[in-house]
Design a protein around this nucleic acid. Structure first.
Lengths: 196, 196
DNA sequence: CCGCTATTAGGACTAGGTACTAAGAACAGT
DNA sequence: ACTGTTCTTAGTACCTAGTCCTAATAGCGG
């Protein structure tokens, strides 16, 4: 049975939305109408042609291609930093950071924020995490803004101890002590204990 | 001045790679040759036509659209799992995982692999990391394949201790002990110590 | 039966190509 | 200087997935 115009157009919109790669001809077969009818429908619904749709998808891809590499250098936005002393970053928990089942943030994102802040606070060419002792104190949910504060506790020639505490509002959600290796430019791999 | 065929083809390949949206005509103008020459070049270099290129980009986008939410549930591919006992996952280190300056993987990726494996090995609705004690033993480089092995050490009512050891080849690169909370479905937030 | 909307058919044209033939240009080897 | 080879260009027919436009027909309400 053929659907009414309204039904068909609603259905068409849905179909194209979830599969932009479908041609007018395929749609015509699916809905048992002529290609021209499909074209008229697209007109009325202001849906662009196949090639435009594909192009649009590809362009979006290009856009977040550039987004997804350099930004990851530091997880969260550093809002204050005093090299070799302290640093603060904020990280907004979005839906891609949480378990779909319960909306609780995955631990590695909190770790990543803290760890990259510990790396950033060190005033050297390169810093690598050697050890870390961490504690997830309280669950973090989608929509929360996590503020991480890093403090340099002790600094030896090679090893630096950084303490990071993250909180949402007044509540501490994460604590960690990071033992960092400083690597002043040269590419030596000092035996044992090294890392990221 | 017009480039030699070899030069032009190398250049063309580069140009298309970083801007797949360029037409043969535009390329012909850029290199001061005819459209046909560009077509022959594409033939020889086995570069598909504009529309195919765009389609390919768009399809990739669609692919990692689905990849970037549910698949991130576990970082790395689980290749073996025995619930509440042990699990193994592999993680290939790509350029987006390393510091651009020295090609060494950022610690939080190794942590993420280990942590999500620790979550996965637990046979319960939900598991959250409470504490973790981790050690980056050796730096991991771009191209390395990291194999993480998780073993459940001890299991109480609420708390489970999971040990994870990651290695590249025969060399251990990361060790961690994760103290996990099991959360059997209900949304209780048992005071103190919880996390991801 | 008239009028209206919806649908369908057809023709002309478009972009951005493929596939093929054919001819001229550039240059090297002898 | 002539020949052979590669490179480049031109031109044609054809393709897909459309646009834009005109015109004919189908189905149905009043």
């Amino acid at each position: 049975m053929r659907k009414s115009k309204k039904e068909r157009q609603a259905c068409l919109q849905e179909t194209i939305k979830e599969n932009p790669f479908v041609t007018d001809e395929e749609l015509a077969n699916e809905f048992n109408v002529s290609v021209q009818t499909i074209r008229l429908d697209r007109m009325e619904l202001a849906i662009p042609e196949l090639r435009e749709r594909i192009k649009y998808v590809a362009e979006k891809k290009m856009q977040d291609e550039v987004k997804s590499l350099p930004i990851e250098e530091v997880i969260g936005d550093i809002i204050d930093i005093e090299l070799d002393k302290s640093a603060i970053s904020i990280f907004d928990v979005k839906k891609e950071h949480v378990f779909t089942r319960n909306g609780i943030a995955r631990g590695h994102h909190l770790f990543a924020q803290a760890n990259s802040l510990a790396v950033a606070v060190i005033n050297d060419e390169m810093a690598l995490t050697g050890k870390a002792d961490i504690r997830f104190v309280h669950p973090v949910k989608e929509g929360d803004r996590v503020v991480a504060k890093a403090k340099v506790i002790r600094s030896e020639k090679l090893r630096t101890i950084v303490e990071v505490a993250s909180s949402v509002g007044n509540e501490v959600v994460f604590q960690g002590e990071f033992s960092m290796f400083r690597a002043p430019s040269s590419e030596k791999e000092e035996k044992n204990e090294t890392g990221n």
